[in-house]
Each structure stands twice: as C-alpha cells, then as structure tokens.
Computed example of a mutant assay.
Amino acid sequence: MDGITKTHESTDQMLSSKRSFLNGKVAVITGGARGIGAETAKLLAGNGVDVIIADILDELGAPLAESIGGRYVHCDVSKESDVESAVKLAVEWRGKLDIMFNNAGIAGPGGSIADLKMDQLASLVAINLNGVVHGIKHAARAMIAGGKGGAIICSSSSAAIMGGLASHSYSLSKSAILGLVRSAACELGQHGIRVNCVSPHGVPSEMLVSAYRMILGKTDVMADEVGKIVGERGSLLRGRGGRMEDVAQAVLFLASEDSGFVTGHNLILDGGYTSAVSQMSFIYQD
C-alpha cells in the first residue's frame, strides 16, 4: 500500500510540476461566470493563471472571480467595445494577455428552417459568432503587441460536425467558428499565436439541461439526469457522459505548452459519438 501511495504522490507531483509553466499566465474567459466557463476559470486559476471572467451574469461572475483571485468585468460579447475592454483590463492588470477562451454563447431559436425568423438568427449570430470574432481580434492585437505569442481557444460544438444535434441557427454559428479558427490560425501562427477549438457533446451545462427540459416536457430535469441520458445514448463509452471538467481539462491542454505544436485544430469531446455508430454490438457477438 505504501508503494502505491508513493506512486500516486509522485504522479501528482509530476503533473503539478508539468503545469508549473502556466504560473503567471493571464487569461480572459468570456461566459466564465457559470458552467464550462466557470469550471475552466477555476482549473486555470488552480494552475497559476491570473483569470479575468468576462460575462453579463454579474451576480455570479464577480464573486467567482474574487474566490479565485481573479478579476471580473461585465461583458456582452456581441458588443465589440465590451470585449476590447476585457482584453484591455488584462493588459492593464498584468501587463499582457496569454490565453483567450471565447466561450460565451446561447442556444438561440429552434424550430423548422422554413419558419426561422431572421431577426432571431441575427441575435444569435451576434453572440455566438461575432462574439468569437471580437475575441480573436482583440486577443490577437494584445498578443502581437506583447511579442510572446499566446493561445486562443474557441468553443464550438459537436453540432458543427454532425447534423440533427441542435437547432439550425446554433449549428450554423458553431460551424462558422470552425472555419474562422482555421483561418485565424493561418495568419496568427507567424506571431507564435495558436488558435484552436473545443467541441463538446452532451455536456450537461445549463444550456443543455434547459434543452432537455423542453424535449422531455419536464421542468425538474437536473444535470445528473441529462448526464445519464447522454452516457447511455450519446457516447461509445457505455455509461460515461461528458462533464464540464472534461472541457476545462481540454482548454487547459490547449492553453499550455503541452499543445505547443497544435493549432487550427478542433478537439472533439464526445466519447467517440460523432466518429462511429454506437449501436453495433451485434458485430462483436459470437
């Protein structure tokens, strides 16, 4: 038992020291007040990163930022000036920006494509897509001026690569992010700036839980129940659904030098769901 304990201790020490190069890095996380953004903020802060939470949920974001030794700024990502102010806060506070996580997004209108209201689509695009453009633009400016590169990570979705998982408007916005990330990676690589995506599937965030409440017609559906449903039907890993911590760990990886040769990449976090048919057990039966 002592040997096992020592092995675990040495492994923990190795992992801890491996992430030590994140100490003193500075990050801005849009949509960081709750859900995936909040989990990521806490994980980055725990690895020595100074985190700015940029969100419209002041009552959640401000105390979270204080609890992790970070800063909070009210930020509506559809407004370029708000995103610019969040990035400027990083530079004024710590003199630089190293990590930008463009995470803010909304579900938007559902229904048939034949009934899609263009004003509702425009509102979603203003947040989900234009907000990411604003984030990449102003992060790039700060990182280029700093002269030491950086990491920009954007939230896409499994709905960007597989039809029928979400509304037309949401799928449109998340698909566009993939193209934008690849294009930005081509330009910004010359400045040592890496640009990547994370694409979660079935992670029981507030957005997904709300969607399942509508689908199931039950207002009391909770995150654990959604996670169980996804684990049973939306993953090749039987009984294993996605977790917000999975996404946070992926962002940590893409923000760190562990992914120093990774750019223009879409890291899909789906338990294999979008890569293969999940109901093929008859092939493996004797």
Rank of each mutant, 00 (worst) to 15 (best):
residue 231 G to A: 03
residue 153 I to S: 00
residue 204 P to Q: 08
residue 174 K to M: 04
residue 225 E to G: 02
residue 198 V to I: 14
residue 247 V to H: 07
residue 253 F to W: 15
residue 190 Q to D: 05
residue 160 A to E: 05
residue 211 A to F: 11
residue 170 Y to C: 08
residue 177 I to T: 04
residue 233 R to W: 08
residue 207 M to E: 05
residue 247 V to D: 12
residue 227 G to S: 06
residue 245 E to P: 02
residue 220 D to T: 11
residue 218 K to N: 15
residue 217 G to P: 01
residue 250 A to E: 03
residue 231 G to C: 02
residue 162 M to A: 14
residue 241 G to V: 08
residue 197 C to Q: 04
residue 218 K to D: 13
residue 168 H to D: 14
residue 214 M to S: 12
residue 241 G to D: 07
residue 220 D to A: 06
residue 158 S to K: 08
residue 230 V to F: 08
residue 252 L to M: 11
residue 153 I to G: 00
residue 246 D to A: 04
residue 244 M to N: 02
residue 162 M to F: 12
residue 207 M to N: 04
residue 173 S to I: 06
residue 197 C to F: 09
residue 167 S to P: 13
residue 195 V to G: 00
residue 176 A to M: 07
residue 234 G to E: 06
residue 240 R to F: 11
residue 168 H to Q: 13
residue 250 A to Y: 06
residue 228 K to N: 15
residue 184 A to C: 07
residue 222 M to I: 13
residue 225 E to P: 03
residue 204 P to Y: 10
residue 202 G to W: 01
residue 212 Y to W: 11
residue 166 A to C: 12
residue 177 I to F: 06
residue 175 S to N: 12
residue 208 L to C: 11
residue 249 Q to S: 12
residue 256 S to L: 05
residue 180 L to W: 00
residue 251 V to Y: 09
residue 184 A to D: 01
residue 203 V to Q: 06
residue 145 A to G: 06
residue 216 L to F: 05
residue 146 G to P: 10
residue 250 A to W: 06
residue 233 R to Q: 12
residue 162 M to K: 15
residue 242 G to Q: 08
residue 166 A to I: 07
residue 240 R to P: 07
residue 224 D to R: 10
residue 222 M to G: 14
residue 166 A to N: 10
residue 175 S to V: 00
residue 225 E to F: 01
residue 240 R to Y: 09
residue 235 S to T: 13
residue 189 G to T: 00
residue 213 R to I: 02
residue 208 L to T: 15
residue 170 Y to G: 05
residue 232 E to N: 15
residue 149 G to H: 01
residue 220 D to W: 01
residue 179 G to Y: 00
residue 231 G to K: 02
residue 171 S to V: 03
residue 252 L to Q: 13
residue 199 S to R: 00
residue 255 A to T: 07
residue 171 S to F: 02
residue 167 S to Y: 08
residue 163 G to N: 14
residue 251 V to L: 09
residue 170 Y to Q: 05
residue 168 H to N: 15
residue 186 C to T: 14
residue 233 R to N: 14
residue 167 S to V: 11
residue 219 T to V: 15
residue 191 H to R: 10
residue 201 H to G: 04
residue 152 I to F: 00
residue 147 G to I: 04
residue 217 G to W: 02
residue 180 L to A: 00
residue 187 E to P: 02
residue 177 I to W: 01
residue 187 E to Q: 10
residue 146 G to A: 12
residue 250 A to H: 04
residue 234 G to V: 04
residue 250 A to S: 11
residue 154 C to H: 04
residue 255 A to F: 05
residue 201 H to Y: 05
residue 206 E to N: 12
residue 177 I to Y: 03
residue 215 I to D: 12
residue 163 G to I: 13
residue 185 A to Q: 11
residue 238 R to E: 11
residue 207 M to D: 04
residue 253 F to Q: 09
residue 184 A to N: 03
residue 181 V to E: 07
residue 147 G to Y: 15
residue 154 C to W: 02
residue 194 R to Y: 00
residue 181 V to L: 13
residue 255 A to P: 10
residue 224 D to K: 15
residue 221 V to T: 13
residue 257 E to M: 14
